[in-house]
Amino acid sequence: MNIIVAMKQVPDLHHIRIRNREPVLDDIPMVLGDIDKSALAAAVELKETTQGRVIIMSAGNRKIRDTVKEALAAGGDEAILIEDDDLADEDSSVIAGVLAAAIQRIGDVGIVVFGEGSADNYSGRVFSAVAAILGYPQVGYAKRIELNDSLARVTRSLEDSDEIIEVPLPAVISVVSEIKEPRIPSVKNILKARKKPTAVYHLNELCVEVPAEKNITTISNLAPVSRRKGIVITSVDELAKILKNDRKPDRQAQ
């Protein structure tokens, strides 16, 4: 059984700086997001119980080949990449179409695992769009997955309850970070990763059409401005008075 883990390379958020309210993204290393790494860790564990194979799938610009090595070191068996420098700007529906097309080329798909949202954008839309295109059932926000030959038993974590769901395979599942801590790859596995197979597709090979008209256009992307008073307090008494008084006029004003 193939266990597919969809992962997204994102700019390392720790390195993002803001200049004149604009994010500075040049020369920022690309990494895999933590929730995606949790998804991978969960998949690797499932592989151990099902004798499956973990296939990492990712779409992105040419840096993706390097970025994905970390996932191969952390337990992926092979990688299937869709490499295109324009993909990064595309809407989630296009990415979903590309991933779905690549998944259709793989036989014996058991589950397709996503993180609940990418580290940079956190939208979580691609997962259900991929399920829709493939016509697979979906279960989002899994904090536990058990697999047998034809069924996944998934504990879905909602805001106020957990649901245990049984879903026939193949299925698309998104996971929350609690499912598993990301694996830090061991040195030996890092060095072995370079020998693991990586297939690279280009968009035209997958016969996915990128629509000329975009559904979503970005108008601006700016750091929020904070409009705060910035008053310095020097004594606890002062602080106590502010805590007691500041709220009242504010609340009356509403």
């Binding site: 958020l13 954008n121 979503i216 256009t217 992307n221 700016l222 750091a223």
Partner: peptide
């Protein structure tokens, strides 16, 4: 977006 570093406006 970008982990909350920025707010994006999209149409």
């Amino acid at each position: 977006t970008l982990g909350g570093a920025t707010v994006v406006t999209q149409a």
